[in-house]
Design a protein around this nucleic acid. Structure first.
Lengths: 342, 342
DNA sequence: CTGAAAGCGCTAACAT
DNA sequence: ATGTTAGCGCTTTCAG
């Protein structure tokens, strides 16, 4: 292993001088710097993050608190991998690397916060973790700069897609097509994702904005954010007295199940029932019919989270909640209700 | 920050003794250990990975070389997030944490290998990276223990799903249903994924196993592993002279495009054409009709990669290629060809 | 079983 | 502009 002492010996300068040259400090001669850099390169010098971290107490590490599968999807949730990736790219270009914070280290029990301290992470990104989890809260309530994506923590800045506004628009979009009987298949109403209740809230607001009544029989809460739950929710909805002519579904994955249920119920989409959804997942354009849905800008969420993180790292203030706009992608799952021409 | 010296002072023991107690070493008295551990807990002591790493030259860090989007999928590839997650869980339970290896650190150029050295990673998992990438090769050819998932590097152990065997079975499955005109929509034939050419190879072997001829007009190479390319490939296939009665498609995502193309071509599945695919992605069961496909065990791939990594970390030898079995999931996209009853 | 001494590679604070 | 000194928190000898 090549150290700065090796470089010092060869160049004839002292270790601190070498250090200064390597770190591009100001108080050093131009020629000296060049000489040192040249030798460093020749020797294939690579700094040692441990030594650096030990003295500076900075790690240039961003901790990632992320647990797959909390949403009950059962397999994988593509949304998050894109968010994390966008965040990663932005942070790396600023010289930070991402480390997953583990919940336990080997046999020894070590909390998330302890882990953060152990690795001396400069900041933490929290993605898709239960907001009630105590270990997570210990981190978000600590003095470590934290940003959250998707889940709302009151004490730290959170980046999510806009939920309420598009939900209102979904209802209004269906209204404009002529629908008056509009149901909502909502996501889980728990602390995990704001998406669940915010979209429900938006649905209600949308109804009110068009003087439509809010009816309990038109609202089904899905147990999980997955296709099976969507299927069940639709079946449940159809067992009730009044039938809607259109459905706002809280997510594309759930919509897949809803559409299958429609198929099994002998309901044609969009002739018998219109469906509008949320996410624009990979398969939304490949479903039958292609799904009209709000596209979440996963890239933008990750990028914005990185932006806020950098601000925080520089000791600046950040807004407590940032909303990323979504975009309505009109495909073929919505049409005027039977017998109506708009 | 609480250090071992704080503990030493309070307990009256020396720093090395405290260190030994904390690290559960043998040459220390039981009572001493208990006393030290108790005080450590009271003070909320957390070790410092930098100090530890500096002296031990071990980081308990596993580097992750992973780049999203190399397969031209354009959005996200759920396969990898599951693999990484399973790998992560296994490694964490052994006391390792995962760190993403960046390609450049801030303004300063730093290669992947340099990064590995900088962080002193104990091992590296390579996922879904171009096998021809020089920086990656520098890592795989270094003395750092490396495992690859999905992409085959000759110099290190690689874990992938079985490809050839199931491809053979796919053809035989269709043959058994009565099909004799079986096409293959193959994945890209580049160095990125063995999956592309191995499945093609298996397709050919399957044909030969049933004395069926290998016809160029029944083989279309898709440009990317995505839906659009699948769509194009199917359109291309249907422009040719002879029409197959069944298609083995190299991946579910491509199959979505293929199915859409069938729809646009007025081809009913499975009445007019049977489709068998590979992956069993989230939406395979929600497509119309539900897709018959080989399920990849992403969890098992990640777990096995972790297993090999642990072996490597212990200085043991590992096989150069490990194949994870896949499972045929029969759904409704395959049927006997027109006019045939089996 | 415990402790004294030394050092891992680097940088901060000073002096020159 | 450069060097001296010291020390970050920990573990590894090795002596007792």
């Amino acid at each position: 292993m090549v150290t700065i002492y090796d470089i010092a010996k060869i160049t004839g300068y002292s270790a601190p001088t070498v250090s200064k040259a390597l770190n591009n400090q100001s108080d050093i001669g131009q020629k000296t710097k060049e000489k040192i850099l040249k030798v460093a390169k020749e020797l294939g010098y690579v700094p040692n993050s441990s030594a650096k971290g030990l003295v500076t107490k900075k790690s240039r590490l961003i901790g990632l608190i992320y647990e797959e599968d909390d949403m009950g999807i059962g397999i994988e949730h593509p949304l998050f991998s894109t968010i994390i990736n966008a965040f990663k790219q932005e942070m790396e270009s600023e010289g930070y690397e991402l480390i997953f914070i583990a919940r336990n280290l080997g046999g020894k029990r070590m909390s998330l916060l302890e882990h953060c301290r152990y690795r001396q992470v400069d900041g933490v990104l929290v993605v898709n973790v239960d907001a009630k989890d105590e270990e997570v809260r210990d981190v978000t309530n600590s003095n470590i700069p934290c940003i959250s994506s998707n889940i709302v923590f009151p004490e730290i800045a959170t980046v999510t897609s806009e939920n309420i506004k598009p939900a209102v628009e979904a209802v209004q979009y269906l209204y404009k097509l002529g629908h008056r009987l509009i149901a909502h298949i909502a996501g889980p109403q728990d602390s995990i994702a704001a998406a669940g209740y915010e979209r429900l809230e938006g649905y209600k607001a949308g109804l009110l904005s068009r003087q439509l009544p809010i009816r309990d029989e038109f609202i089904v809460i899905s147990e999980y954010w997955n296709g099976e739950s969507g299927y069940k929710a639709m079946m449940d909805l159809w067992r009730r007295n009044e039938k809607p002519t259109a459905i706002f579904c809280a997510s594309d994955i759930m919509a897949m199940g809803v559409m299958n249920a429609c198929h099994d119920l002998g309901l044609r989409i969009p002739e018998d029932i219109s469906i509008i959804s949320f996410d624009d997942n990979l398969w939304a354009s490949f479903s039958h019919p292609p799904l009209t849905t709000f596209r979440q800008d996963r890239q933008a969420i990750g990028k914005k989270a990185a932006e806020l993180m950098k601000l925080l790292l520089n000791g600046e203030k950040v807004p407590s909640r940032v909303l990323i706009p979504v975009q309505l992608i009109e495909r073929d799952s919505c049409a005027p209700p039977h017998g109506v021409r708009t």
